[in-house]
Design a binder for these strands. Structure first.
Lengths: 348, 348
DNA sequence: CTGTTAGCGCTTTCAT
DNA sequence: ATGAAAGCGCTAACAG
């Protein structure tokens, strides 16, 4: 019976197999450079003793953990969930383990996680940063020589590999789509301009209006947190306007959910009373009922590509200069934009 | 400027501060037993050098990682996502890091993860097992003396702390609710009876029918995988019956989404043509549009309590005998069950 | 193909 | 309150 909780080390195994600890180590790590016969003996000893190599010792000795960190602002957001899935798949294929860190959009928590990963000697960090305030944390990574790749969001003043969506084009297209449906007053709910996607989507929104020859109304652009509550707050402010918009572009899926919720609470219908579109799909919801018109980003691909770039860097075979991958987003037209409705009227 | 990538160890810091490595170690680990003055000197040295303690070495030496694993079958399932959130919160408060493992309901992957965690010397494992086939993996944990707690699902023949929902009562109530709405032919889509929740929900379903004086029709009970595809397959089989059900009870949220999808594809309406209820909410979807009638389980609480039990075990101050926590589920009536509709008619 | 030697960075233990 | 010595389990580096 295997050693129930007892500490079996290479030495025990070596003694039992009648070889040196080094040979045991070799067998454990692939077994190359060991004769078929010896290897078998060692393997038997390992099985007999129920030996499990102490990865703590191994990691320590080799200064290699085989762990990469994935830091995201919100794990409960289906978008980031997909990023995780993609990244995990690639990491796994390369025999890396993924340490997932959920910052909940809290810069302090993010800082903690970065420090923990630094202390834990992870071999690389894939990060969807909270905002530009993430910069100092990234600087620490650079100082310690830990490679990192940004995903979804850029950070002002940080030169690093980056995988992101084309937010400018995406927002522009959403606006154009709404205008085509007859909307002239289009509200935008964005998060803080400290977040690159918010900046880009605002830029795309403005571009879209410009292209369509519609004048910008400052009051239609409201800033809120990028979550459900933010959506509720944002649309509340828009509805409080003397002349509310007839359509809302939400900076992301969670905000859109909040908007829908608040409108429902007030007895307003989407899209009849207010059209609604956003970035990023809410996959389960959309599969249950294809309702939200969205600019869908290939989140899983974000994760896959970003992890690939990261592992290349970790392996040391990546070009010195930063790489930037911009993936196009796809407009998925469903009901919330009111595509099959007649021209909109103002919210009464 | 901090040592850019260079290796700073306790020794360097000690030299710079004019103390012994031991003192540095003491300062790093809470600083008790060190005079205020020396501590300050050491802290300055640490800051000057940009010293980051090598947790690899520390872990190795103390034989303590401060890491617990959380193994779940499906991270993209909102239910498990909430379990993760709850567990993470508690782990964090106790200064433990959480290593999240997504098995994707693949027993092989689950086995891999268990082995990895064993090798990585995690201090405990919180696991929502794939099925009864998980038993050998759990046995390995026991052999190595690694404490674990089961969450959401029991494993046949495994005695361990367990936090789960009251699936029997939940399913019974769902059936009773449907019967009250006039349904007599109620389909059940469950997963393999190797999963404890599936067994329990089937039992509850049968109990519900019994209580309501409705005879069981074997053909209304179909087995499918517990995901979206399973829902589609399951309802397809139910619709192929000579006399299809008028309502479906899905074993979980993902299955319900699949059912809804398949029905839509076929031009059937929920709840008019087919009522639909399930276990576990799909929070974002429900927030976007409160449609699905569900038996909601307090998933986050599952995670919190389970992690508490686990940390107690890891700390060694838990009773020898196993603890079993059963949390009640809540019926949330929304539209998919057809509560506000007249009595149902068979799907034509 | 196999073994020997040495030491990773930290902390436990025992002095002082 | 501080330090000296020793060693955790493993694996580079080098012999043989």
């Amino acid at each position: 019976m295997p050693g129930s909780g007892l500490k079996i080390t290479v030495r025990e195994v070596a003694r039992r197999a009648g070889v040196s600890p080094m040979t045991v180590s070799r067998v454990v790590n692939g077994g190359s450079g060991v004769s078929e016969q010896t290897r078998r003996r060692v393997e038997v000893a390992i099985a007999d003793l129920g030996y499990i190599p102490n990865r703590l010792a191994s990691n320590f000795r080799r200064e290699r953990t085989g762990i990469v960190a994935l830091i995201v602002p919100d794990l409960s957001d289906p978008f980031f969930m997909l990023v995780v899935a993609g990244a995990e798949e690639v990491a796994r294929r390369s025999e890396y383990r993924l340490f997932i860190c959920n910052t909940r959009s809290d810069p302090a928590r993010e800082a903690d996680y970065v420090d923990e990963m630094l202390a834990g000697r992870v071999e690389g960090v894939l990060i969807a940063p909270v905002s530009d305030r993430t910069r100092p944390h990234l600087t620490r990574l650079t100082q310690k020589g830990v490679p990192f790749v940004l995903v979804d969001r850029a950070v002002d003043g940080v030169e690093a590999d980056l995988v992101q969506g084309d937010s400018v084009a995406g927002a522009r297209e959403l606006v154009q789509h709404l205008v085509k449906l007859g909307h002239k007053r289009i509200g935008l709910i964005v998060e803080s301009s400290e977040v690159s996607t918010a900046r880009d989507r605002l830029a795309g929104y403005l571009e879209g209006l410009l292209v369509c020859g519609i004048e910008v109304s400052e009051e239609l652009i409201v800033e809120a947190t990028a979550n459900i509550q933010g959506g509720r707050d944002g649309v509340e402010r828009l509805l409080g306007l003397p002349e509310p918009p007839t359509a809302v572009l939400a900076v992301n899926n969670l905000v859109a959910v909040g908007v829908a919720q608040e409108l429902r609470t007030r007895g307003l219908r989407v899209p009849e009373d207010m059209a609604l579109v956003c970035f990023d799909d809410v996959d389960l919801a959309s599969q249950l009922d294809p309702f939200l018109t969205v600019m869908a980003q290939p989140a899983e691909t974000f994760g896959r590509i970003a992890m690939q770039l990261l592992l290349e860097r970790a392996a040391g075979d990546a070009p010195a200069r930063r790489r930037r991958v911009v993936l196009p987003a796809d407009l998925i037209v469903r009901r919330s934009c009111g595509s099959q409705l007649p021209a909109p009227t103002a919210v009464k």
